[in-house]
Design a protein around this nucleic acid. Structure first.
Length: 279
DNA sequence: CGTTACCCCTGGAGGC
DNA sequence: TGCCTCCAGGGGTAAC
């Protein structure tokens, strides 16, 4: 479920409840995720205040300055975070609990592709998993010119290129599909084949798609906290993703599903042209 | 170097 | 009801 917008919505939902709170206990229920959850989290963090909750790509960064570092969390494919009452029944896949005086944050992740780790020091980005990450798509770093330089000579299909976190972070399978639809570009188009017009449209499309998804989630943050459903309780209406066989909302042509690098892609063969001819 | 294939894991959906 | 297969919004690593 979680791409950049879902992670950002999680961050926004947690922030007002957790920022400045003193940790009472950290309880590891099951440690064997993609990386083992450190067993010494409680010893490290108990009694310390959470000073900030930031996001880098799809990673959430919990800053504990007085404990000397950052708790880094990734939701993987199936992870979610909830705030619950201390006596709420424990879920089958609740692997980590951060207990605060008034609430408990629970990290649930059925598939265990997520991770929790610790980075000592002032700079969370120094962690090996973060050090090589690409730019944030919602900052001014993402421009058509910057993208033009990156796609130069690349034959890789633009869909896979967009999902490469070493280039741009946060764009997963859904928002890659939706952004390309909005920009009128085929997911099959070689990245290097896109001209200035396409790149301008693509940059705008990525920004709008992610921003709208965050706004859609933000409006239901209240549902996210203290309820079931987690950060997935909001859903941006998709134009093409998951809509194979249905009519394109723009032109009515049947939406097509293909497979690229092992992932499903959805697109309108009429609205989304291979390279030239898109608008 | 760029790009693809495979792997980690559980659960839900659909066919038989 | 059960068993089987396929699929899932991530991403690191090995291999071509």
């Amino acid at each position: 479920m979680p791409e950049l917008p879902e992670v950002e919505v999680s961050r926004m939902g947690l922030l007002p409840h957790l920022e400045g709170q003193r940790l009472v206990a950290a309880i590891v229920r099951r440690a064997d995720l993609r990386l083992p959850i450190p067993q010494d989290l409680h010893a490290r963090l108990a009694g310390h205040r959470l000073a900030a909750l930031e996001r880098r790509g799809k990673y959430l960064l919990f800053h504990w300055p007085t404990a000397g570092g950052w708790l880094i969390l990734h939701l993987g494919m199936s992870g979610s975070l909830r705030l619950v009452a201390p006596d709420a029944p424990l879920g089958k896949h609740d692997h980590l609990e951060l207990v605060f005086p008034d609430t408990v944050m629970r990290f649930s992740d059925p598939r265990r592709f997520g991770l929790v780790t610790w980075q000592t020091g002032e700079d969370a980005q120094a962690h090996p998993l973060l050090a090589a990450l690409g730019i944030e798509p919602l900052t001014k770093a993402l421009t058509p010119d910057w993208l033009a330089d990156k796609v130069k000579g690349r034959k890789q299909p633009i869909k896979q290129f967009l999902m490469d976190a070493r280039i741009v972070v946060g764009i997963g399978n859904i928002y890659a599909a939706e952004s390309l639809f909005r920009a009128g570009i085929s997911p099959l188009a070689p990245a290097g084949s896109l001209g200035p017009e396409h790149l301008r449209a693509l940059v705008a499309a990525i920004r709008e798609t992610l921003r709208e998804a965050i706004d859609a989630g933000g409006s239901s943050v209240r549902d996210y906290v203290h309820s079931d459903g987690g950060a997935g309780s909001f859903q941006l209406r998709c134009a093409v993703y998951g809509r194979a066989g249905q009519a394109c909302p723009r032109c009515g042509t049947t939406i097509r599903q293909i497979r690229q690098a092992g992932r499903s892609s959805f697109y309108c063969p009429k609205c989304q042209k291979p390279a030239d001819g898109a608008r």
